[in-house]
Write a protein that binds this DNA or RNA. Structure first.
Length: 429
RNA sequence: GGAGACGUGGCCGAGCCAGGUUGAAGGCGCUUCCCUGCUAAGGAAGUAACGUCGUAAGGCGUUCGUGGGUUCAAAUCCCACCGUCUCCGCCA
């Protein structure tokens, strides 16, 4: 959520920033207008309350000194003020609801450094590593869904039978590889990030706090009977972990990581990318998350990006880093870098991480503050998040990239400590 | 799922039954100062957030789990919800 004071103070700058995303900024003008009405009513309410507090106190004193008649007389004078107060108070509630609804649908202002442009075609390629299209042998040009079936490590058909399309089931060595990737993703960040295993089903208000509701209700799974939502990412519980709290500056940056299942209905993408693991309703992910001061945010952004990229690099996967154009950054982000892995079998780039700096947009919404040392008062923290390791697509990249001529799959060196002696997934017998 | 107890400031904990000088006693913690050879002990003062008006000093308002209600007046009475604890039941 954007800062109402900033909007009040400099609406044109806010509109200009929002417009860089290609979003309609007219709601900012509405907010300014509604906000000034709110304050008019607030002054009125405060004045009425001040008066009635004063009178109440007087009545109390009269009662205590036994002057009941005078008290009764004074009480009569308060008649009517209540309705008036109620009228103003209701107006405030109503106006603030309108403002909130408008603001919840306004995305964060992109960083001035974020590249111009409205679509993914405008994303800026920051670097490409290990990618040479001519270097792939024929045995690598087999999509992972075919490899998975051939080796019995990925069973899409049976997963679909029990859960419907866009669900997958890993088996045998495939399941082992998945488990190794999760441990690998967590362990390499253990030096600085606290490992958390949060709930994956949360209350409605939790989803609202992180901005996934009400706007994206169609993208999430909802258990009606208990009014619980399946989280689309660990970002949801990790943000809520400290929602409403005031953190000590000394504990910032607060680095957290979590492995969870993530659940997405993918409502808008029926029929797209449905083969294999390209897009699934349920997947495992190691999420990196940090709360920090505005001063620390830039470095933290680079740190999370670096950690996510190193994990991919050390796995030996061809990848590239994109600096997302304003129009392609998701709602809460001010600046986002995507990491994409090249999958030679599927013959395409797969997004495996999206590292976002959300400035104080999420913190404002979830009310997460800190007390700057030596200063009075509190300030909103900055929040940052990025996938440390999104399992299915990395799994796919490994299986395709490391496929040998005999159909076996060599395991990347860095995973060996997690594989109990398994150095390859054997080829077809 | 059944029965009962409970939710107060950074923390502990009074107040609630009998509504009113209670933004809330007392203690701990923290900050500043005094005293003291050092430390400890002791003394004094201070110690919330948010909103709004104001150039400012400051004023006013809101907040005792959350949201409603009763009342001139609610931490205190009523209702709903959320959560915690104890016992029983069930269960990995």
């Amino acid at each position: 959520m954007l800062d109402i004071k900033l909007i009040r103070h400099d609406p044109e700058a806010v509109k200009a920033a929002v417009a860089r995303r290609g979003e309609d900024a007219s709601s900012i003008d509405q907010v300014v207008e509604l906000d000034s009405q709110v304050r008019t009513h607030m002054v009125a309410v405060d004045e009425i309350r001040e008066e009635s507090n004063r009178v109440s106190k007087e009545i109390g004193e009269l009662f205590r000194s036994g002057e009941r008649d005078k008290a009764e007389e004074l009480r009569k004078t308060t008649e009517g003020s209540k309705e008036s107060e109620r009228g103003h108070a209701d107006a405030i509630t109503d106006l603030q609801d309108q403002i909130r609804t408008l603001l919840l649908n306004v995305s964060n202002m992109p960083s001035p450094e974020a590249p111009d442009g409205l679509t993914e075609d405008d994303n800026v390629e920051v670097r490409v590593e290990g990618f040479d299209p001519s270097s792939y042998a024929d045995h690598q040009k087999v999509p992972h869904w075919e490899i998975g079936e051939e080796l019995g490590i990925l069973d899409v058909d049976r997963a679909v039978r029990m859960s419907g399309s866009m669900f997958a089931m890993y088996r045998g060595h495939g399941a082992h590889l998945l488990r190794a990737l999760i441990s690998y993703g967590l362990d390499r960040n253990r030096d600085a990030f606290e490992e958390v295993r949060p709930p994956t089903m949360v209350k409605t208000e939790t989803m609202i706090g992180t901005g996934h509701l009400p706007k994206f209700a169609d993208d999430a799974y909802h258990l009606e009977r208990d009014d619980l939502w399946a989280i689309p990412t660990a970002e949801v519980p990790l943000t809520s972990m400290v929602a409403g709290e005031i953190l000590d500056e000394a504990e910032l940056p607060l680095r957290l990581m979590a492995h969870t299942s993530c659940y997405r209905r993918e409502a808008g993408s029926a029929g797209r990318d449905t083969r294999g693991l390209l897009r699934v309703h349920e997947f495992d992910k190691v999420e990196l998350y940090a709360f920090c001061t505005p001063e620390q945010a830039q470095d933290m952004h680079m740190e999370i990006l670096g950690r996510a990229e190193n994990a991919i690099r050390d796995l030996g996967l061809a990848h590239r880093v994109l600096d997302l154009a304003c129009g392609d950054i998701s709602g809460a982000g001010a600046r986002t870098y995507d990491i994409e892995v090249f999958a030679p079998g599927a013959d395409r780039w797969l997004e495996v991480s999206s590292v976002s700096w959300c400035t104080d947009y999420q913190a404002r919404r979830a009310n997460i503050r800190y007390r700057p040392e030596g200063q009075k008062g509190t300030q909103f923290v900055h929040s940052l998040n990025g996938s440390g390791l999104a399992v299915p697509r990395v799994w796919a990249g490994i299986v395709e990239t490391y496929r040998q001529a005999d159909g076996s799959i060599k395991m990347p060196e860095v995973l060996l400590p997690y594989l109990n002696g398994m150095t390859e997934i054997p080829g077809p017998s």
